[in-house]
Design a binder for these strands. Structure first.
Lengths: 339, 339
DNA sequence: GATGCCAACTGAACCGGATAAGCTGAGCCA
DNA sequence: TGGCTCAGCTTATCCGGTTCAGTTGGCATC
């Protein structure tokens, strides 16, 4: 079961290896008739170019890397990453790039992976998720000169190319919507505090609360897990100044929050309105379906992949803005019941 | 920013490329003192071997492939794949293998991907998910002689190595548990009917129902999405012989079913008991938390990866059985309320 | 009919490792 | 002292592509 090489194609076609290479790459140097003949033979004997040999001489790996750094228990549950990956994938496979995935324990391990990937020439570039405040990965990547696109920001991405969405605007929209419904006591259950986008949302929440004079606006910290989200909700709903609306930083915590509210005998949206971040099918799964701040995550991933391939091609890196998440009102939000 | 090659290490160490190669690979041919010196220099200048060059001469890619073939809308939501991937990943990275991922539209596209991967020598082997009845991928893989481990079965895996779990036993356990609680009218909301494990569960459900004389046992078909799962539940609960317990083929459909039941004014578990397949954090997110048939999916993935690497190493492929899913009773199951 | 030119190809070097085969000098023994 | 062995290295070749510098032949041009 010997896999055919370019030499086999050349022999069958009665030409040199070089000619076959030109034909396959659409380069000038062979006549159209010869090109067609070579392509036909290549197809016939089931030839594909060895990615290794190609990588070796063309100095390109034909792959991009994605390292996921979240504790395994949150990784699985959130639909976010799977959606992102399928978007990235769609764009990459259309351009015949492979996606190399690695799950890492912490940012240092992630940096080590980048260093190894780059040293091994295993990837042509990487996508960086979960931007943190003062992210050690940024200077490390800059130092390596490894082409990269940071998914996150704005801010904190150094000289690297990045793709960001305006979470601040989205959060502001959600708060304004709740206030328009009549809510004054709005709480927020935030994700991991050292993530950059958590910080951005926190700042935006503080700003809009102050602007609208929401004195009871409060942010509590969580970690994206349903468990912690539920706990945070229980704490909020037990306080003296119980909020009438809660905004959650992801869908999983929002669903956990919904359960806790129902368990405590509160009706949603009568006693409590809920807004989830990261609209996903999960939000439509529960009853009432959750009002959510969402966007097309697969498209976001595809956009990031496209941007990365441009950077890999040596184009000027830039900070590109993606679609701003928008609010989809569903059954979990309503005017607060007057008490 | 030239990345160092083996020649750079050789020059610095004052030896030949060959000596460096022997030293790096732990092969005899250099003295221990020289080996240490070479390794120190390699570390110092941040050298790692080009995976491409290695692949080219060693005829090994150092990567395994995983093609995911599910409509994008179900892929993202189920925690199953993310958990599987992180398990696979953990095992692979411990052995310095990379994971190459591709999302495909249908089995034929998947076969094409396998063919390309193998032709390009991009992977040393593949993991095959979602085994179907009369799966076209099996003969295709056999014909390619591409090392593979099928995650699924038993049965229908041809001569390929496989890893399976005893879903029939697990389903039987769940039904027996419900019957022990006093249920007689048990329904099942199944996943995609052409998946092999759906078939296995359906057969097992029919067998145990007959053995226990459950005349109203019924299976309805769905597609793993919350939407369809909800629809199926609505249909079941509206029928004249309304079931008192429903077993769902995945967690997402079970959660959707729970919402539908609550929306229809039924209490869970009072009026309806619910059992989910694929225990995941989602099951503990909702209220009441769902009784579930689960197993350690990450461990399953790790096991599959280990098995695949053995196959890649030329060991005799085999059919290996993984842990049988076990029932974790939670709040969603109880004796049926007598009516 | 010599000249030039260009399209269409060939041959060989090269990418960065792995590895088989060859070489060298030290140590040992008769 | 010559011959043998063997550890410890070097040298050369190979893997399968890409690419650059030639080479060839056909045709237009003067």
């Amino acid at each position: 079961m010997k896999r055919p090489t370019i030499a086999d194609v050349a022999r069958r076609a009665g030409v040199s290896k070089g000619a076959v290479s030109y034909a396959l790459n659409g380069q000038p140097g062979v006549s159209e008739a010869t090109r067609q003949r070579i392509l036909a033979i290549a197809t016939e004997i089931g030839f594909s170019r060895s990615s290794a040999a190609r990588a070796l001489s063309a100095a390109t790996a034909g792959a991009v890397g994605l390292a996921l750094c979240r504790p395994a228990r949150t990784l699985g549950v959130e639909p976010f990453f799977m959606a992102l990956i399928s978007g990235v994938e769609a764009e990459l496979s259309a351009r015949s790039y492979a996606l190399t995935l690695q799950v890492v324990a912490d940012p240092d391990a992630e940096i080590a992976v980048y260093r190894r990937w780059w040293g091994e020439r295993r990837v042509d570039g990487v996508l960086v998720c979960d931007l943190r405040t003062d992210d050690r990965r940024i200077p490390a990547l800059e130092q390596l000169h490894l082409p990269a696109v940071v998914i996150g920001g704005p801010g904190g991405t150094g000289e690297l190319a990045s793709l960001w969405s305006d979470d601040a605007a989205a959060l502001t929209e959600a708060v304004e919507y709740l206030v328009a419904l009549g809510h004054r006591r709005i709480a927020r259950v935030a994700g991991l505090p050292d993530l950059r986008h958590t910080e951005i949302r926190t700042d935006a929440f503080a700003a809009i609360s102050e602007r609208l004079g929401l004195v009871d606006a409060v942010t509590v910290w969580s970690d994206y897990t349903g468990e912690e989200g539920g706990r945070a909700t229980r704490r909020l709903l037990s306080s003296a100044t119980r909020p009438t609306a809660v905004i959650y930083d992801n869908d999983v915590m929002a669903i956990a929050g919904l359960s806790v509210a129902q368990e405590m005998g509160l009706t949603v949206p009568g006693d409590l309105s809920i807004v989830a971040w990261d609209d996903s099918p999960l939000c439509r799964l529960v009853h009432p379906p959750l009002t959510a701040l969402g966007r097309d995550i697969a498209a976001y991933g595809a956009h990031a992949a496209r941007h990365l391939l441009a950077v890999v091609d040596g184009q000027v890196p830039g900070r590109v803005q993606d679609e701003t998440p928008h609010l989809t009102p569903r059954g979990s939000t309503a005017p607060p019941r007057s008490r």
